[in-house]
Write a protein that binds this DNA or RNA. Sequence first.
DNA 1: ACCAAAGCAAGAGCACTGCTCTCGAAATAG
DNA 2: CTATTTCGAGAGCAGTGCTCTTGCTTTGGT
Lengths: 232, 232
Amino acid sequence: MNTVRGARERARIEVTAAIKDEARRRLAAEGAAKLSLRAVARELGMVSSALYRYFPSRDELLTALIIDAYDSLGAAAEQADARAHAAGAPPRDRWIAACEAVRAWALEHPHEYALVYGSPVPGYSAPADTIGPASRVGNVLIGIVRAAFEGRGLALPPLPPALGPEAGRMAAEFAEGLPPAVVAALVAAWAQLAGLVSFELFGQFQGVVEERSAFFTHAAGQLAHGVGLPAV
Amino acid sequence: MNTVRGARERARIEVTAAIKDEARRRLAAEGAAKLSLRAVARELGMVSSALYRYFPSRDELLTALIIDAYDSLGAAAEQADARAHAAGAPPRDRWIAACEAVRAWALEHPHEYALVYGSPVPGYSAPADTIGPASRVGNVLIGIVRAAFEGRGLALPPLPPALGPEAGRMAAEFAEGLPPAVVAALVAAWAQLAGLVSFELFGQFQGVVEERSAFFTHAAGQLAHGVGLPAV
DNA sequence: ACCAAAGCAAGAGCACTGCTCTCGAAATAG
DNA sequence: CTATTTCGAGAGCAGTGCTCTTGCTTTGGT
């Protein structure tokens, strides 16, 4: 019922939020590898050992930040798509809008993007709590393609027979009703989108691509074509 | 001339190599973030301060490993393509072979792959020494597409007019003679290939894609189609 | 052949990290 | 009002990157 349970509990969630905020600030400033519990505690005027009452380890703190990042990124994609949808944009434009939202979020929060889509911190494996928020971006893309499928226009990408069962399983598991060939293309496009963003963010385009924004939009359009969204 | 310049220099390059070897071993075992100079030195029977005679900082050691990783990955792609080329494979199959070689190398050297294509270590920007080795994989892909172009079959991908100058610049800069539209598609495909590999390697496909190998081959084929390589 | 210069390993030391444990104070629950 | 839980503080451990000084050894010029 979310009742007020006394000063202690309220203080706890406030301190927890303050810790995450400060950690996010330091994350943005110096990156995940240099995020130090002691520095966070120091900045908050507490002693480092007190922080362990709220997060049992540095990795747990990072996990909390990862979940928040997934949620923030997912929300950005959802909003961009909703805006495009409300404006009556065709699926292809909604797709591009969602992709551009992902890129924009990544450019605004580079270290948080690196946290979720970059190399995982070694010896760390994402706990189950992250898979829900992690799928929000994917769900946006699925929703756009589904809209195109239920409307008239969706071209079927090719699918080698050997991949039929696997694609069918993926479709049944998280994109019920969509043709397997589309689902397979969708998953690939999702990874490829991350590749485009990561390359730009991690400096791989340095000295190669200059007009990043226009280039990305073009590439996103190509991805849309790849999953079968019509050009109109 | 590579003459023998005395015991001291020989010892120096031997020790340098031993340090890199041990560092690579620890990198494979625990990842870049936990790579510790002291541990490397300890394992080599020297004291940590002695290591600074060979590498001025931890970052410099990492840079050396990055260059080696780029070279190793590039060599793997080159060999795979050369093999396919020698076997008379058409461009599309050479493309897929090169992509699969990249994936195989990444699966064999996950931490080294993460070092070069994952999130860059924060506060670290790749020095100029890395750009040469870094482009070897890209050059392989360019070579394959060029072969298809100079033979008869290469379909021109679409290119929005706004991206014409940028694509032309890229073509002139590192793929002289290829149509700008192809070069733009090539650069995007390169990033997308990395996205596919990264997603698999970093666990983003966990619970999504099961038959990773078949899925990747299919996606690589789609990338080949995207840059204009004919299906035959 | 000798001797100064350069290269090198070792050790001590600094400031920092994640994390554990104990202890006393405060808030809560019965 | 008392017993229990909850929390902050401090000390401490083992580890880190990196610097500086101290001697020893190899080198190169005379």
